[in-house]
């Protein structure tokens, strides 16, 4: 990642209209936004006037720039989201979302229901391509490679990004076959390779000790928590660069949730994790950085502790303190 490029996302003042920085024009991505001078001055303020800015923009259906904390600038981003718009038919669901996801750490997306956090997450590995009515504008970059560029191979892209869904969705096959699925579809036949990957991934997902004696059993017989860890194991079996977790604990009981959160902490460092959660405690416990989204806009993005303890924007504070949402 270039420093300059990150500068582009570093905007602090919610300004009216489509005022934002020009993206660096990189091969594969052409910004369709008009260039606007970058404002590099950090503004560590929590002001009531911000409130009007956000709500006003929302009511007028405008996009506004994210309040990005300074701390985010020092990080190496593995995934960059650049001025990303998304429409379902004629309904705009995402407005000019821009953020960088730091490598090897856990970034949480929080926000009230319907704020577009899952949509944003599913845009990262282009799962939204499966929805016929979806239209997008803007781009994302994984390790500098354009995700929405014309020449992008979606299949290869998805192999570099693991994803875990809200409801555990093990495939109707054995535990072993679930784990090695991504290798199977690549045509890997070597039993030694498969065995090795299966054990490594199951250990990585903290499931090895529980299932090592019944790898041939159907995955559907596992408990919900085990199934979700299996799905995580399946996602990391392909050695992805980024792991997307879409409310991975919403269908689980507290104990299973605790185990998943521990697992997230263990996986941190090895994998970059982007997690969507509606549970603010979970975001606080498990993530290093948090982005707050509201009605399709990315409102504030910063280190988790800062965002929860010292939010810069009034709207963020209202949400994290439970005043709305």
């Amino acid at each position: 990642m270039d420093e300059e490029e990150k500068m582009g996302e570093d905007t602090q003042t919610p300004v009216e209209g489509a005022e934002h920085e020009a993206n660096e024009v990189v091969a594969g991505f052409v910004s369709d936004q008009e260039p606007v001078p970058a404002s590099t001055e950090a503004a560590p303020t929590t002001s009531g006037s911000q409130l009007g800015g956000v709500y006003e923009a929302v009511s007028e259906g405008r996009a506004f720039d994210t309040f990005t904390h300074d701390a985010m600038l020092e990080k190496d981003d593995i995934l960059e989201i650049e001025q990303f718009d998304l429409w379902y038919g004629t309904n705009q669901a995402l407005y000019k979302n821009s953020m960088g996801v730091p490598e090897g750490e856990v970034t949480a997306l929080i926000g009230p229901s319907g704020c577009g956090k899952s949509t944003l997450l599913r845009s990262v590995n282009r799962m939204n391509d499966l929805v016929a009515s979806v239209r997008i504008q803007g781009d994302m970059r994984l390790n500098g490679d354009s995700i929405y560029g014309a020449g992008t191979d979606v299949i290869e892209l998805r192999k570099r990004i693991g994803m875990v869904f809200q409801k555990p969705n093990p495939f109707p096959m054995s535990i072993y076959e679930n784990i090695v699925y991504s290798l199977r579809i690549d045509g890997v036949r070597d039993k030694n390779v498969l065995d090795e990957v299966a054990e490594k991934s199951l250990r990585g997902a903290g499931l090895w000790e529980e299932v090592k004696d019944r790898l041939e059993d159907s995955a559907l017989r596992l408990s919900g928590g085990q199934q979700q860890r299996l799905c995580i194991g399946r996602a990391i079996a392909g050695e992805p660069d980024v792991l997307l977790l879409d409310e991975p604990c919403s269908a689980l009981d507290p104990i299973a949730t605790g185990r998943i959160e521990d697992l997230i902490t263990e996986l941190k460092g090895t994998y970059t994790i982007l997690i969507v959660t509606h549970n603010m405690q979970q975001a606080q416990r498990a993530s290093d950085y948090t982005a707050f989204m509201y009605l399709g806009r990315l409102v504030e993005f910063g280190p988790t502790q800062d965002l929860f303890v010292r939010p810069r924007l009034k709207e963020t504070e209202d949400y994290v303190t439970g005043r709305f949402g």
């Binding site: 799962m127 998805r158 693991g162 991504s182 690549d186 399946r234 996602a235």
Partner: peptide, 27 residues
Amino acid sequence: VPNSMREGSYACGASKWQTIRRIVLPR
């Protein structure tokens, strides 16, 4: 066949036909 299974397969980098052959058809 639950859509979540199809999505899971796509997310693993499977093509449409691979998803149909390995997940959808058996189910």
